[in-house]
Design a protein around this nucleic acid. Structure first.
Length: 280
DNA sequence: ATTAATGTTCAGAA
DNA sequence: TTTCTGAACATTAA
């Protein structure tokens, strides 16, 4: 579920509750749901992380990173339905992992809640962080791409631009929902070859990416009809009210007022676009 | 019963 | 080498 704006919202939401605190315990889910996949296994995590202080809370692509004072870092990857919470989980069933934190005042907890259970939590050494979070595996953050970088990276692949935007090695942070929204704002057809985009289109793409993602962060992300996404305090985001095309198949285009939103499938994922605003 | 869902990764084929 | 497809992971809701 979460893409860059949702993960950024998680990071900002938990930071004041987590940064500067010491890890004094871990607990697995109290219910009988499948135990989360931990890397390394739980005993090694306890040995390496217990007693460490969380010195920073940051985002890398669609992951939440908790930097510890010994150089290790927890890397939380929410995938489709994962949430990081400091209060009030949606239900008590899918609380996969709890970090117990101690600070100047009372003890408190950070939770990883994940309904589908595809998310992961890893404790990585500095060398593993360089490998898994480094430039060889992830492209530049979507909010830190220059026009020049957009041009070079798009120019290097003939894949459809919608598919290229989902490639985390090309640009990090964009997912299926925001890819459709960005291309609609940039007035680019999702099937266009990335390498075939002209200079004006690249510059529109760069501006649309920043505009959509920054607006979505201000709205604390998108909470769709199933209510799945929640911020760190288990509150819904509001960017879904600003969606122009995502999940709006057969509805009137909100921009031109004439086109009908189409749903197509690219790389086994839904793409939504307006054939009037986004010409081939 | 079937399908699709804001993600990632792998195997195998073109 | 690049690109594409299908499958896998697991859960829920329409």
């Amino acid at each position: 579920m979460p893409e860059l704006p949702e993960v950024e919202t998680m990071v900002r939401g938990i930071r004041p509750f987590v940064a500067g605190r010491k890890l004094v315990g871990f607990r697995r889910c109290p219910c009988r749901c499948r135990p989360i996949v931990l890397t390394p296994p739980a005993p090694a995590i306890v040995r390496r992380a217990l007693g460490q202080t969380v010195v920073a809370v940051r985002r890398r692509a669609k992951r939440v990173v908790l930097d510890l004072c010994n150089g290790d870092a927890f890397v939380i990857e929410p995938r489709m339905t994962g949430l990081v919470l400091v209060a009030d989980p949606p239900d008590l069933k899918h609380l996969r992992l709890e970090w117990i934190l101690s600070g100047d005042d009372a003890q408190r907890s950070l939770w990883f809640w994940d309904c589908r259970g595809l998310g992961t939590v890893r404790l990585l050494s500095p060398a593993e962080q360089a490998d898994i979070l480094g430039d060889a595996r992830l492209g530049p953050d979507a909010l830190a791409m220059s026009d020049r970088e957009w041009r070079l990276r798009c120019g290097a692949t003939t894949r459809p631009i919608k598919v290229a935007l989902l490639d985390q090695k090309l640009v990090a942070g964009i997912g299926n929902l925001y890819a459709s929204e960005i291309l609609h704002l940039a007035r680019i057809h999702p099937g266009r070859s990335a390498a075939a985009l002209g200079a004006r289109q690249i510059s529109r793409l760069a501006r649309a990416t920043a505009q959509v993602l920054e607006a979505a962060i201000r709205c604390e992300g998108s909470t769709l009809g199933d209510g799945s996404y929640r911020n760190a305090l288990n509150q819904a985001g509001s960017y879904q009210n600003a969606h122009r095309v995502y999940d709006r198949a057969d509805k009137r285009c909100l921009s031109c007022g004439r086109g009908t939103i189409l749903r197509i499938v690219q790389a086994q994922r839904s793409t939504f676009f307006c054939p009037k605003c986004q010409q081939e």
